[in-house]
């Protein structure tokens, strides 16, 4: 049985796809056979972030509707042999993802992969629901901002009531908070919600803190997941989170930002 991890948030644009790509790639780097699945039907994006957009032939919906085999639609990553991507359809609407259809694909992936990462669309409608329904674990991506934290709280409520595990009364979906686009300096100055504030409100375990970082845009420009794109703070923070997902108790290095010299404090950003 593989671990099914949904990356979800409620609010749009908080970093779900960036996170799905980074975490899946990090898990593959650590030797896990990993598949990352794009549930954002109609707005395919994961292929761009993973850099495989020109190799998409068939997609998730084709597989569900029996128009293609799973192995025809899966794209093997060129950099890591134990990493594959299942792209979303650009043309269909979200209702093409039936719960039973999704289940069939996840079951088939389970035979070949240790971890399945599901990149959820924004919102709390059908697509987001389909992405979370079968999950064992959830990474709740949150930005230190009122609307994002509020939407995360809604998503946490849905994980606890509307997933297969909740409905069957099984062990609940394991939740992880990933606080992204964090600026420790602004939090310290009281201009931004701090890690502690968000943890106090959402009250789920902290998987990691990803700093606001220019490396994320650079990575998406070149189609290289940020964990593979040289050494960047965001990349390292994601790798740290991967270690925690693998059960290692590593210290949080990005809670307080990087120590800075007096010159960079005055003139840097």
């Amino acid at each position: 049985m593989s671990r099914i991890i949904v990356v979800t948030s409620g609010k749009g644009g908080v970093g779900k796809t960036t996170t799905s790509a980074a975490i899946a790639t990090g898990l593959a780097l650590r030797g896990k056979r990993t598949a990352v699945v794009d549930f954002d039907i109609g707005l395919r994006n994961l292929d761009i972030i993973m850099g495989c957009e020109r190799r998409v032939v068939y997609d998730f919906v084709n597989v569900i509707q029996g128009e293609a085999r799973l192995r025809q639609a899966l794209i093997k990553d060129k950099r890591l042999e134990n990493l594959s991507i299942l792209p979303a359809s650009q043309t269909r609407d979200k209702t093409a993802l039936t719960l039973e259809g999704v289940k069939k694909v996840l079951d088939e992936l389970s035979a070949d992969f240790d971890v399945i990462v599901c990149d959820s669309p924004a919102g709390i409608e059908h697509g987001a629901f389909a992405a979370m329904y079968w999950a064992d674990e959830a990474i709740v991506v949150t930005n230190p901002e009122v609307s994002s934290v509020r939407d995360s709280d809604r998503i946490i409520g849905l994980l606890a009531s509307k997933t297969k595990r909740a409905i069957d009364g099984d062990a609940p979906v394991r939740e992880h908070l990933l606080l992204s686009r964090y600026d420790a300096r602004r939090a310290k100055r009281g201009e931004m919600l701090s890690v502690a504030d968000v943890l106090e409100i959402l009250a789920i375990p902290l998987l990691g803190v990803i700093p606001e970082s220019p490396a994320v845009l650079e990575s998406s420009n070149s189609g290289t997941p940020v964990v593979l794109n040289g050494r960047s703070e965001a990349g390292e923070a994601y790798l740290e989170a991967v270690e925690r997902l693998l059960g290692r108790d590593v210290p949080h290095r990005f809670l307080n930002g990087k120590p800075r010299g007096i010159l960079s404090r005055l003139f840097g950003n």
């Binding site: 901002e145 009122v146 509020r150 939090a187 100055r189 009281g190 201009e191 931004m192 504030d197």
Partner: peptide, 10 residues
């Protein structure tokens, strides 16, 4: 220092 306001509202 608007973070405190943000936290209260949340």
């Amino acid at each position: 220092r608007s973070a405190a306001t943000a936290k209260d509202r949340l």
